[in-house]
């Protein structure tokens, strides 16, 4: 039973991070119908910036949990800046072009950012300093759920509550929902669609960066390549839950997290990446709109 619970919580932790990244995919897709292939790279850049900030702080003699907060904040700012620039440079000039063009541009950007970090930093894995202290009260159940897991779960929960509030209750959120429903109509009623799209990229990137920092401090290492696999998995999560749907992305993330963790625990860890892919193909065959997605009939 303990083993089951351990796998359950490790799946929940992974899943909540996939969900954080998947939200960025789903929100962007909902508004401009584009798979932002470079989203995984934004996540990686977030993790890298956090590593650099915490590394510099540690070397200059600071330490502790406060560094993690600082690193996460700076990482979020930078991820937002990269997300914003990415949209301005690679996607905005292609609005109105065929979808294939935008998709290829997205892939190009993903390759570019990966190699930019590779060349500017290092091709190797860098160890990420352990910044999350062990909490005393969790000691009795530490073999099932550790402090890092707890911190990740609480952080993702807060992030998602804030996001839901932002989308459901604020003026900006209303503009985003309107743009998602009908872009040209939203423009007609006076919503600045360009700003809404930029904002969507910024919000998605901030969440990816939070995910990146959490993963980096959880797993303990960072490399230029981590965005690729995380990107595919998070995208699968978004498709699984129904692309364009925000609760769907969370649900999809959790399902992927659990299936991976149980597959690794009970079958073999060699093939844990395969599970995601098999899930993706199965869901695309039987329910292409995803679990919570709406089926759109194309009309001419």
């Amino acid at each position: 039973m303990d083993y089951f619970l351990e796998l359950f919580f490790s799946g929940l932790t992974r899943g909540s991070i996939y969900a954080l990244i998947a939200l960025g995919y789903t929100m962007v897709y909902g508004i401009i119908q584009l798979i932002n292939f470079a989203h995984g790279e934004i996540y990686m850049i977030g993790a890298f910036v956090a590593l650099i900030v915490s590394g510099v702080c540690t070397i200059y003699g600071l330490s502790g949990f406060a560094i993690l907060i600082l690193a996460a904040a700076i990482a979020a700012v930078y991820a937002a800046a990269y997300g914003f620039t990415l949209e301005r440079v690679a996607y905005r000039p292609l609005r109105g072009s065929p979808r294939l063009s935008a998709l290829i541009s997205a892939i190009g950007m993903s390759i570019f950012l990966q190699n930019y970090v590779l060349l500017a930093q290092t091709p190797d894995f860098l160890p990420f300093p352990r910044l999350i202290p062990d909490l005393a009260f969790i000691e009795p159940v530490a073999h099932i759920i550790g402090t890092p897991e707890l911190v990740i779960l609480i952080t993702t929960l807060i992030t998602m509550v804030v996001l839901t509030f932002l989308i459901k209750k604020t003026r900006v959120g209303k503009a985003m929902r309107a743009t998602q429903q009908d872009l040209s109509m939203a423009r007609l009623v006076g919503i600045n669609v360009d700003n809404v799209i930029s904002l969507t990229f910024i919000i998605g990137s901030v969440m990816a960066a939070i995910g990146g920092v959490l993963v980096a401090s959880y797993i303990g290492q960072v490399s230029f390549y981590i965005g690729f696999l995380a990107g595919i998995k998070a995208f699968t999560a978004a498709v699984l839950g129904g692309i364009g749907s925000i609760p769907g992305a969370v649900l999809g993330g959790l399902i992927i997290g659990w299936s991976e963790s149980f597959a690794a625990g009970y079958i073999s860890s060699d093939y844990e990446d395969v599970i995601t892919f098999v899930l993706l193909v199965v869901i695309l065959i039987f329910r292409p709109a995803g679990i919570l997605g709406k089926v759109h009939k194309q009309k001419v």
Binding site: P93, S105, I111, F112, Q114
Partner: peptide
């Protein structure tokens, strides 16, 4: 050669924008 993939990535974006 070291910058190969960086340039390929950038070229894909630029081609799509300026010469699809």
């Amino acid at each position: 050669a070291e910058y190969r993939m960086l340039i390929f990535g950038a070229a894909m974006v630029l081609m799509m924008i300026f010469r699809p």
